[in-house]
Design a binder for these strands. Sequence first.
DNA 1: ACCGTGAGTGTACGATCGTACGCTCCAAAG
DNA 2: CTTTGGAGCGTACGATCGTACACTCACGGT
Lengths: 185, 185
Amino acid sequence: MATGHTDPQRRERILAATLDLIADEGIARVSHRKIAARAGVPLGSMTYHFSGMDDLLREAFGRFTDHIVAVFDAYLSAPADPEQARAAVADLVHVLSEGSQRDLVLTQELYTLAARQPAYRELTQEWMRRSRVHLEKHFDPDTARQLDALIEGLTLHRALAQEPHGRTLTLEAIARITATGAPAR
Amino acid sequence: MATGHTDPQRRERILAATLDLIADEGIARVSHRKIAARAGVPLGSMTYHFSGMDDLLREAFGRFTDHIVAVFDAYLSAPADPEQARAAVADLVHVLSEGSQRDLVLTQELYTLAARQPAYRELTQEWMRRSRVHLEKHFDPDTARQLDALIEGLTLHRALAQEPHGRTLTLEAIARITATGAPAR
DNA sequence: ACCGTGAGTGTACGATCGTACGCTCCAAAG
DNA sequence: CTTTGGAGCGTACGATCGTACACTCACGGT
């Protein structure tokens, strides 16, 4: 018994392939077979490692939020004062809205799931909570909340707009929202 | 020939059933058969009225944007001055984020499609354009753009948040974004 | 050297899907 | 009344799907 025979990389490869496939084709077109082909694993591995499609999707989006939260952390933990924080937020908005189509698409797929199923809503709530913690290092809680929503809206509108707005407008919006919100320092 | 035999209500019922089904189960689970059952039409009507699934979805979301743009119009065309406009925007955010789950879910499904396919992006762009036209009646173009993004973010975060923020915070955010943007009056 | 065990796989089954297409049948033309 | 064309429908086909499950086989214990 206990043959050290297992391969933990299999699981990870399957999860990565799942996210890649969703980014390329959308949740509507995912299937165990396509994921297996992409990950280079036999079909039987799907039901062996995951109890079903729902289980697989939940875990895959868990990995995705880990990744996207890490991006937020990377941008929002560095700044040392409110002014640097504003610049970092602007960077974040522009990276998210014009960087890889992958993250943008996956974010929308996640929001769509979250709008309907509480299990996924918890993932987005954790994400929102984490980003607000960072923002509250430089702004009061109410301002942080408003700024968090603004980031969301600016990112989405920039990503979908025919002529995306420039960095100047992003910075102006951030400055306005945070104008009266960082008095204590 | 030219038997006035056609029934235009069939098409509409199919489109309405399509949106209902998407709101209930998500695009991933729609099928011609389920839509037909919901609309009370035979399966054959699906391929008769629409050239395929893609065609059907595109037209259905066209109807949806017509509806949601009408909601925007209803709220944003009434106000007579910037102060009333701010209140109307706050109303809009709260109606969209706590009203029918249906509109929220369909909006997210549409954004997900728009993030990947240009055909759907045109729908969201038209919607964004229309709402900005209304906002520009009371605020300068840059402010209108920022406010439009803020509406998006506030609505989504309020809809997904564990403890949605109150109207006071909504109004404060709107006031901040529009504070310096409505000088001409 | 032999077995037991459990990780990992190949395959097959029943369900469901999108779509094509031949058919019905009503209304207008003659 | 007979003809006829097109609107609309029922059905069947091939593809694809999720999942269950019997199986293989390398390894650790004896």
